[in-house]
Design a binder for these strands. Structure first.
Lengths: 194, 194
DNA sequence: CGTCTATTTGAATGTACTCAAAAGCGGTGG
DNA sequence: CCACCGCTTTTGAGTACATTCAAATAGACG
């Protein structure tokens, strides 16, 4: 199993000794998915929280009109899950699907519960992870309301240049909450502005 | 100091003994604010994370055009802060202002850092708090994209009936990301639909 | 080269916004 | 008790921004 990415990631916030590392990985599952495969499907319970070793995923919701709304992307060294479904173990209203072939390290809800007891330092790690994730999510709400579409798109490109290059434009449009046609028109405007 | 609300709140997730309780409150500040007063102002650093004993607050951002965008409300037994500013101790892009006379229990960033070391169980408490907050924030992003304005308003009324009754309509419009005039028109439609 | 998918274009439409003005609704003081 | 004030909500006309739908174009890959 490729443990190094996750270990490096963890080491930024807490120190684990060898015993703790092996306890952690004894509960972990390495899993490879092909492009197009689903980690979570709307209606199912989100069984795992997944740390991305390699690849790219999208989280999206399909609304009553059948429209797809992308809420998040995830690439190397990001976590992904439908957290609401995962923590409460209730049916998810989201899909998590691979945009590329993807390798993840997964923890089930029960595993994580046990790990928190065995390695209390993990409470700190995830406290910090969720704290940052929440702060980022709040910022996104602000941006969505206070920036116009063009500014929002430019900010996305600036903040996530890696994602922009790996993901088709229509998915970026979905993430920004606009149609693919409109994003195309905005891009045209931006070219003419320069 | 009114400690009971916070103690009850904490007891849902972790158990503190008497010594830990007194350690916790030795770092806490009780503070009363009048309607209209600010806990945080855009440009200042958010010094405290605040647990609301009583009252009602709004968090909002003022954009470049001078428009106010409310991102959150907070009432009894909620926490409020600009978390991004608080955890990094950098200038905030939000304001937190009292809509009613309000009493809060506040913790500074340094206090909380010390408390995490003195009472490691608090890592767990805040892990759970931020985990839930993040999950809720994600849900809000989904709703904003997949529901139309009318549905979003109805959901807000259903989810936060207490807030709806305590807060003027124009603030709810701001929270929903629409103008007060448009919300007024939606309400008119809703009356005629019944 | 042909097929499949992604992006662009254009016309018509709709949703939400702006601005200005009127109406409603407490509270306060004469 | 009612008149006035400040604040909130409503109304209406005109407008801007983003969408839909259909069709054309561009790119990727076998």
């Amino acid at each position: 199993m490729n443990k190094q990415s996750l270990l490096d990631y963890i080491a930024k916030d807490i120190n684990l000794n060898d015993k703790e590392e092996s306890m952690l990985f004894s509960k972990a599952k390495l899993r490879r998915y092909l492009k197009g495969q689903f980690l979570v499907q709307q209606g199912d319970t989100c069984k795992y929280i997944s740390f991305v070793n390699s690849g790219c995923l999208k989280t999206f919701h399909v609304d009553d009109e059948g429209r797809e709304h992308i809420t998040r992307f995830a690439i190397e060294n990001w976590w992904t899950a439908d957290l609401g479904s995962f923590i409460e173990q209730i049916p998810s209203d989201c899909n998590v699907q691979c945009i590329e072939n993807t390798e993840v390290v997964q923890f089930s809800s029960e595993s994580l519960t046990e790990l928190y007891l065995q390695i209390p330092k993990l409470e700190r790690l995830f406290r910090i992870i969720f704290q940052k994730a929440f702060a980022a999510s709040e910022k996104r709400v602000i941006r969505n309301f206070s920036l116009n579409v063009k500014e929002n798109y430019l900010l996305f490109r600036k903040q996530y240049p890696k994602i922009e290059q790996r993901v088709p434009q229509y998915m970026i449009a979905s993430y920004l909450g606009i149609t693919k046609e409109f994003l195309s028109k905005i891009r045209k405007q931006l070219i003419h502005e320069q």
